[in-house]
């Protein structure tokens, strides 16, 4: 491809101000000595100019208000979601703490605090494990049911 052809390909981009400084320099030097390319560049100018002056279609004020209202609802929903997540984290941490702390308390109350240091599969331990598992299972089922309900509500909203 000759220098002339290369420059000719750059002319549309020159009208769009989309050339690098090196390319701009090349084009400027070439069009000074090439009337065909100079004319071609001038042919691109009005097109670029009209494109820059096309009227801007504007959204209606109703659209902007409706968008804001929906976005506000979304922000509120997100804030509620964040709050629920924080509460859930605190509750889970508290539940773990309570479970761990209840072991020595449970043994102390049942008069077997000393034996907790040497755990055995006694009747007390099995009862305690069953009670804990039941508690966690009930909590899990409640959490799943709550999540399903919230998802249903969100879908309806």
């Amino acid at each position: 491809m000759s220098e002339h052809d290369k420059i000719r390909e750059l002319l549309a981009l020159a009208a769009a101000d989309a050339l690098t400084s090196a390319e701009e320099k090349q084009v400027a030097e070439h069009v000074r000595s090439c009337i065909a390319c100079s004319n071609e560049l001038w042919a691109w100018r009005p097109i670029a100019s009209e494109l820059r002056r096309l009227p801007t279609p504007q959204p209606s004020s109703w659209l902007v208000q409706a968008t804001l209202a929906r976005a506000e609802a979304k922000l509120a929903e997100q804030a509620e979601h964040d709050w629920n997540r924080r509460v859930m984290i605190v509750l889970v941490a508290f539940a773990w703490l309570l479970t761990i702390a209840s072991w020595p308390v449970f043994h102390f109350v049942s008069g077997r605090f000393g034996s907790s240091l040497e755990p055995q599969f006694s009747h007390t331990w099995i009862s305690f494990a069953a009670f804990t598992a039941l508690g966690w299972l009930a909590g899990g089922v409640a959490a799943v049911m709550l999540a399903i309900r919230q998802r249903g509500e969100r879908r309806l909203a």
Binding site: P57, Q58, L75
Partner: peptide, 23 residues
């Protein structure tokens, strides 16, 4: 930070450009 007024400002600032682009 969840500031609704900031969203309003941003929508006002970009509404024409964004709508035109989508259109």
């Amino acid at each position: 930070r969840g500031d609704l007024n900031a969203l309003s400002e941003l929508i006002t600032r970009y509404q024409n450009r964004l709508y035109r682009y989508l259109l």
